[in-house]
Amino acid sequence: MITKDEVEHVGWLARIEIDSADAEGYATKLNSVLEYFGQLDEVDTDGVAPTYHVADIMNVFRDDVVTDSLEQKDVLTNTDSEQDGYIKAPRIM
């Protein structure tokens, strides 16, 4: 069961601001889903390898050959927050 505190912690990890007042409500909804996920415990997976990829492919590489970059204006076209070609963001700390 996920607790109210855990919801707030996970919210921080995921950078989703959760109001303390809403955390309880979140916890209830998330717990109903987690409870459903709990049925996975019934499955015996001893000795079973995880499947990360369905296709058994390996060693996919590209050659070290330069391709075109975007124009600076196309990089900055989707932001209003720009300064001298840089993207401007709020301070870190």
Binding site: V75, Q83, D84, G85, Y86, I87, K88, A89, P90, R91, I92, M93
Partner: peptide, 16 residues
Amino acid sequence: MHIGSIEKSKGTLIDY
């Protein structure tokens, strides 16, 4: 690039 020091910066400029 921090505008000012990292602790008292007014903003961050990013070059990717």
